[in-house]
Nucleic acid binder design. Structure first.
Lengths: 351, 351
DNA sequence: ATTAAAATTGACAACGTTGTCAAACATATT
DNA sequence: AATATGTTTGACAACGTTGTCAATTTTAAT
């Protein structure tokens, strides 16, 4: 097309600076072995001509794409957080970050990733749950020998580097916190069971319950989805029990938002009548419901670290740590009260 | 590194099939002028060797990256929708889609985009508001001659293709709809004024008001941000007026969600005491608040169309239409009632 | 002053593909 | 049968960069 202006190449810079192409290449790539004086002259020629290196040519000879990929499943608050963090990271370094959805066991999805890898369009990839639950994908990645980092993997990774957080401990501590306030009936809004994190959080809850000699009652465990309607329905269900819980612990903050909405609708005050706690990733949540005490899930740090780790691997360096687990911490915002102070409520007339 | 397996090249395929590299190239690219018999033989050789073309080499000779870029500003429901649509589109065609944030007037942001363009890492880009409000960027794109499509541009684009929606008409119709129900005091939760869409929606509202001889009252126009807290605050403000509106029209559904939350908190029933309408993009909203009547903003179609349009431009075809404006339509969900049926409320004791 | 070592520079090939153009072959037309 | 037309094929040169390795210059060591 009429792209008129033909690109300036390294050859023309070399001619203007009166040196070889290789020397220009050395200057561009900050390699040693160029005398300061000549380097200066080359730099001048570069600015004068407005030279910009052609990445395709570099890719061809170096067999590198300078693109890394992050695989996500569908959309949601988890994914949004990952994406916005990843987009911020896009400013750093020389790598472009390609965001790609991956639906386990969906053939077009598989073909797409296979093509990305085999065509050498990406140098490495980060997988997020539940993408890593697809053995086909894992196998494909392993066979290709491409750099790979897991985020919160479902299964043991067999030596592949991963980044995760202390889900068990976080859930344990929050549950214990509720127990210390005197709660005995604690409803748990459980996420999908094909996430390692969900399972670990459940185990943490159970462990805390049992440590404090409270018998585990399945009635208070609701398998909801990690989203608003999931939490909404689950909370209504829990509050409709003959002996409703005095506290609800939602394993995602979207579910917590749904639960809060349901409680509002039922005219049940938080924390006056029921305490509410959440396990959360989103940062803006405090704008929405200022009061929810939460186990902070360090998702942004996880994404950041996993991308850094991946780039280290891509560049052939030996990362110091290959398995990184970030701590979680509880943020107190006052949605938890002792049940003895809570005002009782009745739910007749509502389902 | 130990990437062992050296890639299969077109040369080896040619040798196995007993033909020239060029013929293999023709087969791979579905070009004509290859006899069926030979084509078959080449195809067999390709599968036998597991040949996959090297994109870098193709990029180099064709001076094309097969990557297109979409620029977004920050995050939010608009951006989430765009991203998830774009990720779905990633399955189609031969192009990879690079999502990039762009903060107008932020120098690192500018450098990044300039590098992407000059290094020929992208073949074209789609801009979303308010990215296109940065004259530097527009100038950069124009000078580079790279393919470009606007989404909902703030300014006239001077011939550059764009895709948008009938914001004016949508707002006009919804406002008229409210007026036909008998509303005279209609609160408007206005978005940021550096979006073309926000302005057009405001104009549509005003036009409808004036057409029906209602005098425009600035009291009922609240400059809120297009998000949950913005809508929350704005709604509380409106309902605190001496003569509160009988209907609220939120120009984004996040603001509408915030407004609804505020109304719930104030124990004001929707639509019993106040009608609520929204201008919206998100599709899942009906799960959250089944009842909000909404002007559907066809964002997914817009994104889809703009990417298709961009690819047409990149490939040098002449698109039939270069300015595309999608219609909006009203979805009735029952959050609107005539004010004469509305139960009055009082707000003392609350701010 | 001489030699050894190190730093600097450049010529040239390679990377894997596609574009160009001419050669070889097949078919249709006179 | 001879010519014109069209279809199929391949040789070879790009594309713009970096890696290799040898040539040259400079510096250090004797």
């Amino acid at each position: 097309m009429m792209r008129g202006k033909l690109a300036v190449t390294i050859k023309e810079v070399a001619r203007l600076a009166g040196c070889s192409m290789k020397t220009v290449s050395r200057v561009v790539n900050d390699e040693p072995h160029v005398k300061p004086e000549l380097r200066e002259r080359v730099l001048d020629a570069i600015t004068e001509l407005g030279y910009v290196p052609n990445i395709s040519a570099r890719q061809l000879v170096q067999k590198k794409s300078y693109v890394i990929c992050i695989l996500l499943h569908s959309s949601g608050s988890f994914q949004s957080t990952v994406i916005s963090k990843v987009l911020d990271l896009g400013y750093e370094g020389n790598y472009e970050i390609l965001v790609q959805t991956y639906y386990p066991s969906f053939s077009r999805s598989r073909d797409k990733i296979a093509a990305l890898i085999q065509q050498k369009r990406i140098d490495g990839l980060v997988t997020t749950p539940p993408c890593d639950s697809d053995p086909f994908l894992i196998d494909l990645i392993k066979k290709s020998g491409i750099a790979h980092v897991h985020i919160a993997p479902l299964q043991p990774t067999g030596g592949t580097p991963y980044v995760s957080a202390e889900d068990f401990t976080g859930a344990y501590q929050m549950t214990e916190h509720l127990i210390h306030h005197g709660h005995r009936r604690i409803g748990l809004l459980m996420g999908l069971r094909n996430h390692r994190s969900s399972l670990d959080r459940l185990f943490g809850y159970k462990a805390a319950i049992e440590t404090h000699s409270i018998s585990f009652d399945v009635k208070y465990l609701v398998d909801s989805e990690n989203n608003f309607p999931g939490g909404y329905n689950a909370a209504r269900m829990l509050m409709g029990l003959p002996e409703p819980p005095t506290a609800i612990f939602a394993l995602s903050d979207e579910a917590a938002a749904g639960a809060l909405y349901a409680l509002n609708e039922l005219k049940i005050d938080v924390p006056g009548q029921v305490s509410l706690a959440a396990f959360g990733d989103i940062t803006h949540s405090n704008e929405i419901w200022p009061g929810i005490s939460v186990v902070k899930y360090p998702l942004e740090q996880i994404v950041d670290k996993s991308v850094c780790l991946l780039i280290e691997l891509v560049e052939g360096r030996q990362p110091k740590e290959r398995q990184i687990i970030f701590p979680t911490r509880i943020i107190h915002r006052g949605s938890i009260l002792s049940p003895r102070n809570q005002i009782p409520f009745n739910t007749e007339g509502k389902t």
